[in-house]
Design a protein around this nucleic acid. Structure first.
Lengths: 150, 150
DNA sequence: TATTATTGCGCAATTA
DNA sequence: GTAATTGCGCAATAAT
């Protein structure tokens, strides 16, 4: 469970953002830990009701902040995992459908063939029918009847 | 590909970074920061060959660094866009295949019906056949010399 | 109002 | 060395 603070601009087009990561005691100068949240650049108006209520600064050191971050990080991981899973499922679905398609195509081929044979047989013996005899020109090798179209 | 580790949990380097789309020039105080790259937390062995070559510090302010970052950011965006596009295409493919499937199912239904009708007709007039009256298969399998199997 | 879920984004490590 | 990927954390926002 690693947690890391890194950077991040809390800005849009405002231009400059103050980013900060926790201090590292390396002789590096200490920097204020309070960073402005949602700089005006966002173009989003801050509700007047909140203007004076809470500071528009976030204490990145507060436990509350860290806890929130940690929870969000978990949520993010979870969400991304889910997303990935879904994508994979979709790919699988594609293959499944492809297979099904082939199966269906094969069946159609078979049925078509059967139909063709039956029809030929029909024509071949049409003269044997007492009632519904069709005027067949040449009894042998009558070309096939039209196939079902669609 | 990669593992989990990122950085050191407890502390993190870097104080204030100025991020923006343009050159750094603002009234904000700028703190030159040399940040250690690949903190020891990961326990990753550094190739000896590179050990003494370059400092294990990265100057986040260097133009070279910023340029590299910017290029990578663009590459990342591009890559993610591509990825998203692909995912969408896959979804579309699924719908496409579904439609095709329905079309095929319908065709099968039609062919089956036709076959059924033809067979019934056959049976109905079977007695009219003088020569070779064959009992047409009960189901879908007609006995014909040419085709077999499935 | 709070909490979780998504999403865009930048960083850095890898990979190609 | 460069571009492409990928995991990760942050913060804004959507959804509950």
């Amino acid at each position: 469970m690693s947690k890391t603070s890194q950077q991040n601009p809390t800005t849009d087009a405002s231009g400059v953002s103050v980013i900060h990561t926790q201090a590292h005691s390396s002789g590096l100068q200490q920097v204020p830990q309070l960073v402005p949240v949602s700089p005006g650049g966002g173009g989003k108006a801050v509700p007047p009701s909140k203007q004076g209520k809470k500071s528009s600064f976030v204490d990145r050191n507060s436990d509350e902040y860290r806890q929130r971050r940690e929870r969000n990080n978990m949520a993010v991981k979870k969400s991304r995992l889910k997303s990935k899973q879904k994508a994979q499922d979709t790919l699988q679905r594609v293959n499944q459908l492809k297979e099904e398609n082939e199966r269906l195509e094969a069946k159609i081929k078979l049925l078509t063939k059967e139909l063709s044979v039956l029809k030929d047989l029909f024509l071949e013996h049409a003269h044997n029918f007492a009632d519904n005899v069709q005027p067949v020109g040449t009894e042998t090798t009558t070309t096939n009847p039209e196939n079902s179209g669609q």
